[in-house]
Computed example of a mutant assay.
Amino acid sequence: SIVGPSGAGKTTLLQIIGTLDKPDSGSIEVDGIDVRSLSTKKLSDFRNQHLGFVFQFHQLLPEFTALENIMIPAFIAGKGRKEAKERAEELLEFMGLSDRANHKPAELSGGEKQRVAVARALVNNPAVILADEPSGSLDTKNKAELHQLFFDLRDKFG
């Protein structure tokens, strides 16, 4: 957990760790790989296969269903439709959202959208999940449920 006052650089640090931004100096090694030495394409592939991101605002694509939003990173990683769909359905079931699989983001509650975003972050079995204030836009009940979900995910998926 990274905590601190607003403006302290928490988001910047997460963006650097997540290879979305470059540091002014130093090195970054994730899962034994020096990420600063990777080409743009290799860095993109690395990010897709080793890192999962959950943002404060879910960043779901509105024209796709919950199931499709979760499958997108798997497709980018080169996985076939059957494999991507099975994994996405497994995650939706774990999230308690199987009955919402074919709903678009506009048809989901805030808590449901954020659980879909968490499932999307997990679809490629990343080594690290980076969550930048993932409960910041949720009400107290959904906030508590999301925090518990992260502990449950750790216990089930490592």
Rank of each mutant, 00 (worst) to 15 (best):
E29D: 13
L51S: 06
D21H: 12
D132V: 09
D45C: 00
I28M: 13
I28Y: 08
S25C: 06
E29Q: 06
H147R: 10
Q49T: 15
S37M: 10
P73G: 09
G18E: 10
I129F: 08
K85W: 01
R115L: 02
D99R: 13
R120C: 09
P126W: 12
L67P: 08
A84C: 05
I33A: 08
N142Q: 05
S27Y: 09
L108V: 05
F46N: 06
V116C: 11
S98Y: 01
E145D: 14
A66Q: 07
I2S: 04
T140N: 12
K104T: 09
L61N: 00
A119M: 06
H58V: 06
L20I: 14
T140V: 13
T12D: 02
I72P: 02
E86S: 14
P73S: 11
E29T: 15
R36H: 10
A119V: 08
G136C: 08
A131R: 04
Q148C: 03
E145Q: 13
K143M: 12
L97C: 03
P105T: 00
R36G: 15
L20H: 10
V54F: 02
L146A: 03
R87D: 03
L60C: 04
V128T: 13
L60S: 09
L122I: 07
A127T: 12
G18K: 10
R81F: 08
N102T: 12
A77E: 12
Q114H: 02
G18Y: 11
T12Y: 06
N124S: 06
S25E: 14
Q49S: 14
A74V: 06
H58Q: 10
N142G: 06
G18I: 12
R47N: 12
K141W: 09
S6L: 07
V3E: 03
E89M: 13
G32N: 08
A8G: 07
N124I: 05
N124W: 04
K41V: 09
L67G: 03
A77N: 14
L13D: 01
A119K: 02
A77Q: 12
L14S: 05
P73K: 11
K22G: 05
L60D: 01
D24Q: 12
T12C: 01
S137Q: 11
E107H: 04
E63F: 06
L60G: 03
N142R: 01
